[in-house]
């Protein structure tokens, strides 16, 4: 009597294992189809669609100017002694990690302190990290609208007869079609950034 029971158990175990294998294979196949980003996937987001800002030469720039390139967009201010240099140093390192593909990456630094970040300061500042970086600014109202469109928080905080700025530190990445795809966090490494930007450059 025990014999057929054992056989049944064996069949069940085998089919269970088979089901598990099918499941595992299925998962792997699903993963191959879509890119796995290390940043926050914002594909299909209804915000962060475009900007209209001015470069240090006085030209108006929008996302359409960077078609075919991956754009890494960061909001900050030049008087920032800590996070902004760290973000721009990382962006310069990302360009090195991308090697020959670096020419297809445009790093953009948007000031949330246009009052003090005059075009010459902005230009000198971004160039100090990498001459290929672009600084953009708008007037107070345009800055406010842009930050709102990108869900970027910034606030003037008085200190010592002067002021400093609180601000969001996410970096946004756009694919070569100009669509917002990712938000990368400040604590992520240059390797994480390069990994995700490479995927965007492959049109994933």
């Amino acid at each position: 009597m025990a014999y057929p029971l054992r056989a049944l158990a064996r069949v069940l175990a085998a089919s269970g294992l088979l089901a598990l294998l099918v499941l595992v294979a299925g998962c792997q196949r699903a993963d191959e189809g879509r890119a796995v980003f290390r940043g926050l996937d914002l594909t299909g987001a209804s915000y962060g669609r475009d900007f209209r800002l001015t470069d240090p030469e006085g030209r108006e720039r929008t996302l359409a100017d960077f078609k075919g390139q991956v754009v890494l967009l960061y909001f900050g201010f030049t008087q920032c002694p800590d996070v902004c240099p760290t973000a721009l140093i990382r962006a310069a390192e990302v360009r090195q990690l991308l090697g020959a593909q670096a020419s297809r990456l445009q790093v953009i630094f948007v000031t949330i302190d246009p009052e003090r970040d005059l075009p010459a300061v902005l230009k000198g500042y971004t160039a100090a990290f990498d001459p290929a970086f672009l600084g953009l600014y708008g007037d107070a109202e345009r800055t406010r609208q842009t930050a709102q469109e990108f869900k970027v928080y910034y606030k003037k905080v008085p200190t010592g007869g002067s002021y400093t700025m609180d601000h969001s530190t996410l970096s946004y990445a756009f694919d070569p079609q100009g669509r917002l795809r990712l938000a990368l966090r400040h604590e992520q490494s240059a390797q994480d950034y390069a990994h995700d930007l490479r995927l965007l450059l492959q049109n994933l």
């Binding site: 030049t78 002694p81 800590d82 000198g124 002067s162």
Partner: peptide
Amino acid sequence: VPQQQATG
């Protein structure tokens, strides 16, 4: 950079 008014 020139005209930058603060640093750490």
